[in-house]
Amino acid sequence: MNDRVTASETNRDRVRRLVIEPLAETGFRFKQGTDPDKAKAHLNRITDALAHMSDEELDRMRASLQTKGEGSSRCFWPASATVLALAEVCHPRPMEDVPAIASWFRSAAGREALAADRLAAEFRFWERKKRPPLNEAERRKISEVAAEWRRRAQYVSERQRDGRSPGHDELEWLRWFEALTKRAQALVEGGSAA
């Protein structure tokens, strides 16, 4: 283990260690004359945008960002928008970390998705796309995914109940699905309580 890593390392520290510092060491910098406070704020936005990622994902982000330098020498820090777009592809930010978007689930629309038993699928769509479904094809796809997930969850649960082993992958999927459903329900219930 790296001797710089301690039990008290924050997520920001981890992003700095795995992404920011290595990129700075390869030559990333700010344009001459950049206000130091603005430079610091820019790097803080990057660290906050990546803080939810695993070490492996941060390594991938660093490798990808190495090729995204700006300017004719490709050595200036990329814009926050570039980093955010790459981060969403690598590992979408959890909905709970994006209050403006998560508020949809606190509205009547979230309760409607819960009542229609498509809440987990709709939550996953929003988490990946950071937007609502825009047309009938997307709404239909969400309903199809929700129906498939219900069937799969029922199948795995029945196998468990009957004492038959559903398999490690199926059990992992069921745990993921149940956790996703709880996260989505917590947002809806937060809105109901309000």
Rank of each mutant, 00 (worst) to 15 (best):
F30S: 09
A120C: 09
R161K: 12
R140P: 03
R159M: 13
E189C: 04
E122C: 06
R139E: 12
R4I: 09
E178W: 13
F30R: 15
P78Y: 10
H91S: 13
F30W: 13
E96S: 06
R93L: 03
V19N: 06
A109R: 02
V156I: 03
A7F: 10
S8D: 11
A41W: 09
S103T: 08
K38C: 00
L134W: 14
S192V: 15
D117W: 10
R12P: 14
D97N: 12
L174V: 08
A63S: 14
R183A: 06
D169G: 05
T181W: 15
E189I: 07
A147H: 05
Q32E: 13
Q66W: 14
G71P: 08
W126H: 02
T26I: 09
S72H: 03
A153E: 05
I142C: 11
V145G: 07
D13G: 06
A85Q: 07
C90Q: 04
I101Q: 07
E170G: 09
S157A: 14
E88Y: 12
A116H: 12
I46C: 04
A179L: 14
R60F: 03
S143H: 01
G71Q: 15
G69T: 13
A63V: 08
A146G: 02
K182N: 14
T10H: 12
P94L: 09
R17H: 08
S103Y: 10
E70S: 15
V98G: 02
V98N: 04
V188L: 03
K31T: 10
A115P: 04
E148G: 14
G163A: 09
D169N: 05
R139I: 13
S103P: 06
N135P: 10
R164K: 12
K130Y: 01
P22W: 11
L119T: 03
M95V: 15
R159Y: 04
K68T: 01
A100G: 14
A153M: 08
E178R: 15
L23W: 15
S54V: 02
S103G: 07
E70K: 12
A147T: 00
T47L: 01
E189N: 11
M61Q: 11
G190I: 04
L18P: 02
L65C: 09
T10F: 12
T181H: 15
D13L: 10
T47K: 00
N44S: 14
E25C: 12
V15H: 02
E189S: 11
P99G: 09
E122M: 10
T10D: 10
E189F: 11
I142N: 07
M53Y: 05
E138Y: 01
A186P: 04
A39Q: 06
V89C: 03
A120V: 07
P36T: 01
G33N: 12
P132E: 06
V145I: 15
L58T: 02
Q160R: 07
W77N: 01
G69F: 12
S143K: 05
D169F: 02
L180I: 00
L43S: 01
D97G: 13
A194M: 13
T82S: 00
A115W: 08
R45N: 02
H52S: 10
K31Y: 07
